[in-house]
């Protein structure tokens, strides 16, 4: 029995799959966060032991200052051991603007250092935009949907033709069934998803953007959702495809 379609699909798959290039170096990740915590914990425990030994060996009437200095310097290595965890401390720094105006700021308005007022997108606005976009895809209005995308996402597809080809194939299986959810629990942070956008999401302000997930119940689980970052860019509300 001739199997032309099968053989053609197999030939195409072979050509494409064999074009994959292995990255030069294998992944060699550092210790996991739990291992880091273990390292830090061990260092802290060691410092505590040193402190106890120093205090135990000192006459009770002796000044406390030298032993405190010893503890302080001993703590430095443990702090450097936790250096890879620096990103986790970043939000603390970033959170400082939310601490309210300093006593030096004028009570009548924002300080100049706060920059221009940001027209942050509301979750409802973002949900409405994504719902309209998804409805357009369901209705086969690909050019209209394309117009809602940010440049970075358009460049990810390359052209409206490529976008239409991919989305039409996908939405044929969606069969009009979808669910829009704003910032669902369990999804990674918007900063993480920004890295999935071509160009790293340059020009998108994560603080003024909203993460929206659309799930499609009729699609197989491994491929049944899209993740979008909705942002205001240059006065327009645009959709950036993160997944």
């Amino acid at each position: 029995m001739p199997q032309e379609r099968t053989n053609r699909a197999l030939d195409e798959w072979r050509a494409i799959a064999h074009s994959a290039r292995r990255p030069a170096d294998p992944p060699r990740p550092g210790p996991t966060s739990s291992q880091l915590l273990s390292v830090v914990g061990t260092a802290v425990a060691a410092v505590a032991v040193v402190a106890v030994l120093v205090l135990a060996g000192r006459p009770p009437q002796g000044p406390a200052t030298p032993s405190a200095a010893a503890i302080g310097s001993a703590a430095v290595p443990s702090a450097s051991a936790s250096q890879p965890a620096t990103p986790s401390s970043a939000p603390v720094t970033m959170a400082s603007p939310t601490n309210g105006p300093s006593p030096m700021q004028s009570p009548t308005g924002p300080s100049p250092s706060q920059g221009p007022a940001r027209a942050a997108l509301t979750p409802a606005e973002a949900a409405a935009v994504v719902t309209a976009y998804t409805q357009e895809l369901v209705a086969g209005q690909y050019a209209k949907a394309w117009g809602r995308l940010g440049d970075a996402s358009k460049s990810g597809y390359g052209s409206l033709a490529a976008y239409t080809s991919e989305r039409s194939a996908y939405f044929a299986s969606v069969k009009g069934r979808y669910r829009v959810e704003v910032s669902p629990p369990g999804l990674a942070s918007i900063d993480t998803w920004l890295t999935a956008i071509p160009g790293g999401g340059a020009g998108i302000d994560p603080a003024g953007s909203v993460l929206v997930e659309v799930t499609y119940p009729l699609i197989e689980p491994s491929n049944q959702f899209d993740v979008y970052i909705v942002a205001r860019v240059g006065g327009s509300v645009l959709i950036f495809i993160a997944r």
């Binding site: 033709a161 490529a162 080809s165 194939a169 999935a196 993160a242």
Partner: peptide, 29 residues
């Protein structure tokens, strides 16, 4: 779901390759 998809395609592909892959993918899907 914290795992992020970096791209939909291999970035080195031209448009013809992308369309070709999408056709194969659709067929095998």
């Amino acid at each position: 779901r914290r795992v992020v998809h970096a791209t939909h395609f291999d970035e080195s592909w031209d448009e013809a390759a992308r369309i070709r892959w999408m056709d194969v993918r659709q067929s095998l899907g």
